[in-house]
Every structure is written in structure tokens, then in C-alpha cells.
């Protein structure tokens, strides 16, 4: 019947509107649900998500050792030539020549933080860091050398 349909339509509309209003009202009366981060104020306690991609870093352990073999897989994976791996040849104790990392050049100003280099790395030598405060006055400081001076490849990483 027409009247029945008409009234049930109004009832349904009222119910769905009330459902929406209950949700916003729920948030309104509970200030604890606010998810805003008041950034410069909470810098000391700010915790970024684990999956956050701030910059590419190369972790070094306490003995200043890294896991980069200088294979240049990251350089090949990079879509916009952000990474330049400079390699050298070192002599092993058996007097054999072996390829090793000399300088890992990282252009932060060109990086889109896509993470393809981290995926391509076979030894897990590079990671995505959490730091996001990258603004500087001099653009040239954005070209970084990721391996620390005097660092060596960790034993057993091939």
C-alpha cells in the first residue's frame, strides 16, 4: 500500500540519520578519541608508525660494520637515480681481488621514498629510517654518504 510504504520510508530515513548522528555525537562527547598530533609540541614523545618511510639509512653495528656488499642492486632498482654506489677492489687474505663498497651516495633531494631499493637489497644492508625533519638551508647537504668513515662489511655477508 502507498501510505504504508511512505511511512516506512520516513521511518527508515530517520533511523539511518540517527545512526550517523549517534556516531558523531559519540566522538563529540569523548575528547579522548581525538587523534590529532600536536607536532612541534610533542616532538620528544612522537612515535612514528613502523611502516613510515622517512629516508634511506644504512645501519652500522657497534664495531662499525655494515652489510653492504656493493652489488649495486639498489642503484639499479632506483627509478630516479637517487643512489650511486661506488665500489673498490680489496685484497682478501688469500690474495684474491674482491669487490667491496667504497662510498654509498644517497641524494635525498631526488628520493621519492618509494622503498624499492630496500626491497631489492639481497643482504638487508639498507632500511627506511623514521626521521622526517629534512629541511635544510643548503641543498648540497642533502647529498649524503651513508656508510660511515672507516666502516667495513660484516664477516660472513656475501
Amino acid at each position: 500500500m502507498f501510505i504504508k510504504e511512505y511511512i516506512s520510508e520516513i521511518a527508515k530515513a530517520t533511523k539511518s540519520l540517527w545512526t550517523g548522528m549517534r556516531l558523531t555525537g559519540h566522538y563529540f562527547v569523548r575528547p579522548k578519541t581525538v587523534i590529532t598530533q600536536q607536532y612541534p609540541d610533542n616532538r620528544d614523545t612522537l612515535k612514528m608508525a613502523d611502516r613510515f618511510r622517512g629516508e634511506v639509512i644504512m645501519p652500522h653495528d657497534a664495531d662499525n660494520l655494515h652489510a653492504c656488499t656493493g652489488c649495486t642492486a639498489c642503484e639499479l632498482a632506483c627509478p630516479n637515480a637517487t643512489i650511486k654506489v661506488i665500489t673498490k677492489f680489496e685484497l682478501t687474505p688469500e690474495n684474491k681481488k674482491k669487490k667491496a663498497l667504497d662510498t654509498f651516495v644517497y641524494h635525498l633531494d631526488m628520493c621519492t621514498l618509494c622503498g624499492l631499493c630496500v626491497d631489492a637489497c639481497p643482504t638487508g644492508a639498507i632500511q627506511m629510517g623514521q626521521n622526517f625533519e629534512h629541511s635544510v638551508y643548503d641543498r648540497s647537504t642533502l647529498t649524503k654518504k651513508l656508510n660511515k668513515p672507516g666502516s667495513k662489511i660484516r664477516e660472513g655477508v656475501e
Binding site: 558523531t24 555525537g25 566522538y27 563529540f28 575528547p31 578519541t33 581525538v34 587523534i35 590529532t36 600536536q38
Partner: peptide, 13 residues
């Protein structure tokens, strides 16, 4: 302020 708190924000502060 009302808008912010309904959208789980803080609004002007």
C-alpha cells in the same frame, strides 16, 4: 570546535 571534535580533531587551539 564542534566540527573538529565530531571529526576526532582538536580544532583551533
Amino acid at each position: 570546535k564542534v566540527a573538529a571534535h565530531m571529526q576526532i580533531r582538536l580544532g583551533p587551539n
